[in-house]
Amino acid sequence: MNSNHRIYSVSVASVYPHYVAKAEKKGRTRAEVDEVIRWLTGHSQETLEKELAKKTNFEDFFAQAPQMNPSRSLITGMICGVRVQDIEESTMREIRYLDKLVDELAKGKPMEKVLRQ
């Protein structure tokens, strides 16, 4: 099993508290983290909470998302030492898009900019 497959099989619910903690440490809220996840995936708050409760893994979370936001291709820059726009493997790119959105939120970017509006 390659390392990417191990990452894909991790549940979104197991990483979610880290996203929230990162945002809250910088004065942002869980609601804002949920908003960026909903923007990226097309989930409603209810369906997002169901996926977290089911402990859906990252691969299935993105593959079964209601509507991946077409504007996510506007997410660029470095995350974990890699340019997100250069990641070829689709699931890894989606994971890094989410990482980048949470990172921007934690860095204090206005929500309109985080959501590419």
Rank of each mutant, 00 (worst) to 15 (best):
Y8I: 06
Y8N: 04
S9T: 12
S9Q: 13
V10F: 11
V10G: 05
V12Y: 01
A13D: 04
A13C: 04
A13Q: 08
A13V: 05
A13G: 02
V15T: 09
P17H: 03
Y19V: 00
V20K: 00
A21Q: 06
K22D: 02
K22S: 08
A23S: 10
A23H: 05
E24Y: 01
E24N: 05
K25A: 14
K25C: 11
K26A: 14
K26M: 13
G27I: 09
G27Y: 07
R28Q: 12
T29C: 08
R30N: 11
R30Y: 04
A31D: 13
A31V: 12
A31M: 10
A31Y: 09
E32L: 13
E32P: 09
V33G: 07
D34H: 12
D34K: 14
D34S: 13
D34R: 13
E35M: 15
V36L: 09
V36P: 03
R38L: 14
W39Y: 13
L40M: 14
L40I: 07
L40S: 06
G42R: 10
G42V: 12
G42T: 11
H43I: 06
H43Y: 13
H43A: 05
Q45S: 08
Q45D: 04
Q45L: 06
Q45H: 02
E46Y: 03
T47P: 01
L48N: 02
E49K: 09
E51Q: 08
E51Y: 03
L52C: 08
L52A: 08
L52F: 07
L52D: 03
L52R: 03
A53G: 03
A53R: 07
K54L: 15
K54R: 15
K55A: 13
T56V: 05
T56A: 02
N57W: 00
N57R: 00
N57T: 02
F58G: 01
F58A: 02
F58S: 02
D60E: 10
D60P: 00
D60L: 09
D60R: 09
A63K: 14
A63L: 13
A63S: 14
Q64W: 09
A65W: 02
A65L: 07
Q67N: 15
M68A: 14
M68S: 12
N69V: 10
N69H: 14
P70D: 15
P70V: 14
S71P: 06
S71R: 15
S71E: 15
R72V: 14
S73L: 13
